[in-house]
């Protein structure tokens, strides 16, 4: 039950972060484009001597420009950093991380098993260390009190992604090792496919092969 909640949380978190980042940058582009359009109308009205239109466009411009989106880029970066750290943990669960498999694929029996255990343990070790030094780093930043330049949020909150994401990733590697020891299974994910979506390839190939 707890595990189901954790799984869902992980999935929802990274999907939402992705959606937010896209929406944010899209809105920022539309915002800037609208401003440019309003200014063009002002200039056009000025040339064609239409003071009413010019005034209207000017006030529209001022209204749109009162929404400040200079923080959008920074926000996008932080959203993606959080997505990357938690997404990497999710990636372990679904087996998305790529390795150089040329030797392991040629091994059999105990040697293969030992190698695989070493490989997964490497993941546990690395992510564990990162979680630990990341936590110290967050503590350090928390004491320093830095804020980000655009959003002006506390940097330690931003940096929290490193230890939190890595701790979760470490846990996922432990899970993977446990699964392997119990069943000998390694999760491999089909990345080309999106789970739950069947691609309708239709009437391919065109007119058949010759």
């Amino acid at each position: 039950m707890m595990m189901r909640i954790l799984d869902r949380f992980e999935e929802i978190l990274i999907s939402v972060l992705m959606a937010l980042a896209v929406a944010l940058i899209f809105v920022a582009v539309v915002h800037r484009f609208s401003l440019g359009f309003a200014v063009d109308v002002v200039k056009w009205a000025r040339v064609h001597d239409m003071p009413a239109l010019q005034a209207a466009a000017r006030s529209t411009f001022a209204w749109i420009n009162s929404f400040k989106l200079t923080w959008a880029q920074e926000a996008c970066i932080y959203l993606f950093v959080w997505m990357a750290k938690f997404g990497a943990a999710y990636g372990v669960r679904i087996g998305i991380h790529v390795g150089v498999d040329l030797l392991v694929e040629r091994l059999t029996g105990t040697a293969k098993k030992a190698m695989t255990i070493i490989a997964i343990s490497g993941g546990i070790l690395f992510t564990g260390i990162v979680a630990w030094i990341g936590a110290e780093f967050v503590h350090h930043t928390w004491k320093g009190g830095q804020i980000s330049a655009d959003l002006e949020i506390k940097m330690w909150i931003v940096y929290l992604a490193v230890p939190a994401g890595s701790a979760l990733m470490c846990f996922r590697f432990v899970q993977a090792l446990w699964l392997y020891l119990r069943t000998g299974e390694i999760v491999q994910h089909d990345i080309g496919a999106v789970e739950g979506i069947e691609d309708d390839i239709g009437d391919f190939p065109l007119g058949g092969q010759r």
Partner: peptide, 13 residues
């Protein structure tokens, strides 16, 4: 979104 996030995260990692 989820599948794109996973792939992106792997590359960013």
């Amino acid at each position: 979104l989820l599948s794109s996030a996973a792939m992106s995260a792997m590359l960013l990692y």
